[in-house]
């Protein structure tokens, strides 16, 4: 096992899959000569040439839509959006074209497309560049939406996404790029749509994903000092959603806190808690709590931005509340 960063894990996944299959290529803004705005694709153009590492104009709709057409014709493109926020100008391509073709044309078309984008806040990029838009995309049947929280998952999920025959939106978190973790030396995949129990515990289930799973892990370590053992379920995928793993944990702990960086209204917490109420009502010992981002357009000022993003302390407080500790 090598210890590498989340950034390096993503780069390795792309490089190894391009090495493995000549039909895999990457296209997006600044992926080539620049090496990626977040340095994910650094060195790939030298390694694979400009045919397979393709710089594009600032045309998000054409990037995703173009990759969709190439996927229809049998290639396995990776379309990179510089940030998920720019996906909003490519919404038609992301949610209304690629995820519809297989179904709408009676199964005769397949779209083996991976869309990569970085999301989340915490870098003082203000309202339009700091959003967590995961649930918007997860709303659409036909699209898979995965979000790694660790270097291990970053690599394994991306490789699985590239090999999947469906359109997959793979959302990274920029604050996780320097995060380090163990990654196997050999080839491996992390199946899409399977949640991960990141930490075992019996007192409360914390359901989270992406960077908030790491924040939850920090909270759990602190809680452990108080004698509270939290179990952490990292969803890894919002669609398909692995409720089995969530419910298995909940039936053990009877208490749940859901932590997400996005806005609370209509969010992941709303979905997960409702499903628990629907499918495990008899196991509920305390009202389910949601920890989520402040419902404001993200402010620029450092202190305000920090107030808007859920923190370790917010998670600890929510766990105290569900356990009845004032």
């Amino acid at each position: 096992m090598a210890v590498i960063t989340y950034r390096e894990a993503i780069r390795q996944a792309i490089s190894e899959e391009m090495e493995r299959d000549p039909k895999v290529f990457i296209m997006g803004e600044e992926v080539g000569i620049w090496g990626g705005t977040y340095a994910i694709t650094k060195g790939l153009m030298d390694q694979f040439g400009d045919k397979r590492v393709r710089d594009t104009p600032i045309s998000e709709a054409a990037i995703v839509g173009g990759a969709t057409g190439a996927a229809l014709a049998g290639l396995r493109p990776i379309a990179e959006l510089m940030t998920i926020n720019f996906g909003l100008v490519a919404m038609d391509a992301i949610v209304n074209e690629a995820p519809k073709y297989h179904y709408m044309f009676g199964g005769q078309m397949t779209v083996p497309l991976t869309i990569r984008a970085v999301g989340g806040g915490g870098r003082q990029l203000a309202a339009t560049h700091s959003q967590t838009l995961d649930v918007i995309f997860a709303y659409f049947p036909g699209l898979k939406v995965v979000l790694p929280a660790t270097p291990y998952d970053a690599k394994g999920l991306l490789k699985a996404a590239i090999r999947d025959d469906n359109p997959v939106l793979y959302i990274e978190h920029s604050l996780l790029y320097p995060h380090k973790g163990e990654v196997p030396d050999e080839d491996y995949l992390v199946p899409l749509g399977k949640a991960n129990v990141m930490r075992q515990g019996s007192d409360v289930t914390i359901v989270s994903y992406s960077r908030m799973a790491q924040i939850s892990l920090e909270a759990a370590e602190a809680l452990s000092q108080e004698g509270i053992e939290a179990e952490i379920v990292d969803l890894r995928s919002l669609r398909p959603l692995d409720m089995e793993t969530v419910l298995d944990s909940f039936r053990k702990t009877f208490r749940c806190v859901i932590v997400e960086e996005g806005w609370k209204s209509y969010g992941v917490g709303a979905e997960i808690s409702t499903r628990i109420y629907e499918e495990a009502f008899d196991y509920i010992d305390a009202p389910i709590k949601r920890v989520a981002g402040a419902e404001v357009p993200m402010p620029y000022a450092r202190n305000l931005e920090q107030l808007a993003i859920p923190s370790k302390d917010d998670v600890i407080q929510a766990v105290h509340e569900v356990l009845g500790i004032a």
Binding site: A62, G65, G66, G69, A70, A73, G74, D92, F105
Partner: peptide, 24 residues
Amino acid sequence: WGGHAIVGGHLPTAVGLALAVQYQ
């Protein structure tokens, strides 16, 4: 390849089909 109902929505797809032709 269809039959597409969003006005202009199929044009990037068309470009991608052409990219696949060139690529291969």
